[in-house]
């Protein structure tokens, strides 16, 4: 860990408090050697309109996804992307973004697939930083290129594929999409474009827990007792469960993956990034419609 964690008492109750930093902490630590701040947004132009001074941009679409195959980039490309942004294997990376860190958490999850050890989220993300009147700049960061090693991505620990989900049926699944998508009345998030899934509904037995229930109005994560109420009491998750979360393409469930893994401390949580755009178009996979989780296929 290149930079000491944020000691804020507010984070102490979480399973892995070192995964969060506050806006105060970040402001005080800007420019600290070994720290790189990265902005990762849903709207890929937001960084250009103004960002935290010194922050680099990580574009979830062009930086992290393979341009041809539906997959993330491989180790060589990841090394090139991070090295160009001044990130070494030992760098402390703080990621923040729009929409309650929705995409920032997804980017953090991709970093995790490559085993980058010290990667944290700015609690509250871009909106909180701006709401508090902190400094922004439109000057793009010009980091000095550094060496990042070529690491083979680990797709077995935090990532699930369709066949993994089929084999997993009977274990907890969390569907983090909107209630309308879950029930099958639509295949896209409200106010989002049609994404081409051919069938609507959810994976049998999946519990519906929309991702935003983990976020407070100011975009910060909810306190632990509220998160426990949502995920343990309502959704019935408990320590030792093997959980898979999914959404449409794995971005919203990246947020939930962060909450379950780093705030609640569940181990072995996986994000199914194929999600509904794959499952809802795959031939002969089981689907349930309606508001109830439904039964396992016979």
């Amino acid at each position: 860990m290149a930079v000491a964690p944020d000691p804020s008492p507010r984070f102490a109750e979480y399973a892995h408090p070192e995964r969060l930093v506050s806006t105060d902490w970040l402001e005080q630590n800007l420019g600290t050697p070994g720290l790189v701040v990265a902005e990762s947004d849903e709207d890929v132009l937001l960084y250009e309109t103004g960002h935290i001074p010194g922050a680099v941009k990580i574009d979830w679409h062009t930086d992290l996804n393979d341009p041809v195959t539906r997959d993330f980039i491989q180790g060589e490309r990841f090394a090139a992307v991070l090295g160009a942004k001044g990130i070494t294997r030992d760098t402390t990376v703080v990621i923040y973004g729009d929409k309650s860190n929705w995409w920032a958490a997804y980017t953090l999850w991709v970093f995790t697939l490559f085993g980058h050890e010290d990667v944290r989220l700015l609690d509250g993300g871009r909106d909180k930083w701006i709401a508090e009147g902190r400094a922004l700049t439109t000057e793009a960061a010009t980091p000095e290129a550094v060496e990042y090693p070529v690491i083979e991505r680990d797709d077995t620990t935090a990532r699930a594929f369709r066949d993994d989900v089929l084999a997993h049926l009977g274990n907890p699944l969390i569907d983090v999409r909107s209630p309308e998508e879950y029930s099958g009345s639509r295949t896209t998030a409200p106010a989002y474009p049609e994404e081409g899934a051919l069938r609507a509904g959810h994976i049998p037995t999946a519990k519906s827990v929309p991702w935003a229930r983990a976020a407070a109005e100011d975009g910060t994560f909810r306190p632990l007792d509220q998160l426990n109420g949502v995920y343990r009491d309502e959704a019935g998750l408990s320590d030792g469960d093997r959980v898979i979360a999914y959404c449409r393409i794995g971005e919203r469930s990246g947020h939930t993956w962060f909450v379950l893994t780093h705030l609640l401390g569940l181990e072995g949580v996986r994000n199914y990034d194929g999600s509904w755009t794959e499952w809802g178009s795959a031939v002969r996979v089981p689907i349930v419609t309606g508001t109830e989780p439904g039964d396992l296929p016979a």
Partner: peptide, 13 residues
């Protein structure tokens, strides 16, 4: 290539 196809659909709409 710069913007996900999903977003471009917003412009089509």
């Amino acid at each position: 290539a710069a913007i996900s196809p999903l977003r471009l659909r917003g412009m089509t709409a």
